[in-house]
Design a protein around this nucleic acid. Structure first.
Length: 416
RNA sequence: GUGAGUGUAGCCUAGUGGUUAAGGCGCCAGGUUGUGGCCCUGGAGAUCGAGGGUUCAAAUCCCUCCACUCACCCCA
């Protein structure tokens, strides 16, 4: 094979498109229902936008970015996540002047240089949404509700909603200090990865999957016990809101997220069955990010879900997807004169809004009908010399095999 | 970046040292003179992932590379 799609990328072939169409439809419906407006941002941005927002010490920035220099010498990066670009757009276009909260959503490809495996690719698609300018816990609840209802509408069941609060820039440093103290006492028992985490990103010590480390994590100080009064109130209100909405959340004290910008609320939605790359979507609050990117202080919260993982779960759960519409008519013809007429007739029908596939010329009628059959059209129009001379067509109903002779000028009304 | 497994037509699979690499699905054609699905018959389609080595002889054994899959890391 001379060329193949680059590692970790793939073609979305026609047979797969039914899933994409279905999900895009649900995305649009869901966003419409909750008042989110679409935004599309560039595929690449100034590299610093990502390193500053996502965090210099995160894996995404440290080793997963597709970064390149363009001919003008600008350091650019293919977007490794969605939120930073939307925040940049919010600041750049002065959206703080709009009535708040501003609610935006996107569906876009994401690029990360990683080793591919089940549910993980170098190019994948994320659907995400962000709400700016409101720090009330009721907005957190609404954002989480929207995520949950989105998956339900897709037909996915047996999902888990995990929730945690990791504090704000006031109270988190205290917590991190306590956490570091605790782990420093257990350094000897930690796995090599966790030793590195202790220095770089202590929050992530909490979700190490090794049993020995989980045992240490179980007794570790929990972020929810070190929240400042404001964060504490925000979190308890949020839990009340979610209860009222009937969302089956569980507080997971070990839930932390890989991006540095999160504050207070973090949440994740996962399938019940544990397995490799299982998280379907996640999000949280990022109340300091807009300010860090040069905007005026603006609280915000967002969520993102991976489309490929949604498809994986739709398949695993055997969710039935409504089929894409098939062409209505197949245009079959016999002989040279009829072939010319077929082109004209097909064009006429299409201009009237009817979908028509033409069969390839020079094939037997049998072959043309076989083609019509595989295309699953509703009708096949058959014309030969006789029909052209009489100004009629043979209209065959493919489901019943019934045929009738229809004058050309009555064909449109027969078909509509 | 680390570890393990796998690469045979578009897809799924048989073949583990010995003639022209086998079967199923799909595709194409024929079985009607102008009629699809089922059935029957035939056909096209494979430098056996790539390169090198061992051997009289390699899809089969060895090495290197590449890709895919799975797991770790991390994340959607």
């Amino acid at each position: 094979m001379l060329y193949q799609a680059p590692r970790g990328t793939s073609d979305i072939l026609p047979d797969e498109q039914v899933y994409w169409y279905y999900i895009k439809q649900q995305v649009a419906d869901s966003c419409q229902r909750y008042g989110y407006q679409r935004i599309d941002t560039p595929l690449f941005e100034d590299s610093r936008l990502f390193s500053r927002s996502v965090g210099e010490e995160t894996d995404i920035v440290d080793k997963e970015m597709y970064t390149f220099k363009d001919k003008g010498g600008n350091q650019l990066t293919l977007r490794p996540e969605g939120t930073a670009s939307v925040c940049r757009a919010y600041v750049e276009h002065g959206m703080y002047n709009l009535p708040q909260p501003v609610k935006l959503y996107y569906l876009a490809p994401i690029f990360r240089y990683e080793r591919p495996q089940a549910g993980r690719f170098r190019q994948h698609y994320q659907f995400g949404y962000e709400a700016f300018g409101d720090d009330d816990s009721s907005l957190d609840a609404e954002v989480i509700d929207m995520a949950w209802q989105f998956f339900r509408a897709l037909g996915l069941n047996s999902l888990l909603l995990k929730l945690n609060s990791i504090g704000c820039k006031e109270c988190r440093p205290n917590y991190l200090a306590v956490l570091r103290d605790y782990y420093t006492k257990h350094t000897g028992e930690l796995c090599p990865d966790c030793k590195a985490r202790l220095a770089r990103n202590p929050l992530r010590l909490l979700d190490c999957k090794r049993p020995s480390c989980q045992q240490i994590a179980r007794l570790a100080p929990k972020s929810v016990n070190y929240l400042c009064p404001q964060c504490e109130a925000h979190f308890s209100q949020l839990k009340k809101h979610l209860g009222r909405l009937g969302l089956p959340f569980t507080v997971d004290n070990y839930l932390v997220r890989g991006l540095d910008y999160y504050t207070r609320t973090v949440f994740e939605i996962q399938p019940e069955v544990e397995g490799g790359q299982s998280t379907l979507g996640g999000g949280g609050r990022y109340d300091s990010l807009i300010e860090e990117l040069g905007g005026s202080p603006t609280p915000a919260i967002g969520f993102a879900a991976g489309i490929e993982r949604i498809i994986l779960n739709l398949k695993r759960q055997g969710v039935v997807i409504p089929p894409l519409p098939k062409p209505k008519v197949c245009m079959a013809h016999i002989g040279d004169i009829a072939a010319e007429e077929a082109i004209r007739l097909a064009a006429t029908l299409r201009r009237a809004g009817i979908s028509v596939v033409a069969t390839s010329s020079g094939k037997s009628l049998k072959a043309q009908l076989r083609q019509a059959n595989t295309l699953q059209v509703s009708y096949t129009i058959i014309i030969g010399k006789q029909e052209v001379e009489a100004g009629t067509v043979v209209l065959r109903d493919m489901a019943t095999s019934e045929q009738q002779i229809v004058p050309v000028d009555q064909l449109l009304e027969q078909l509509s």
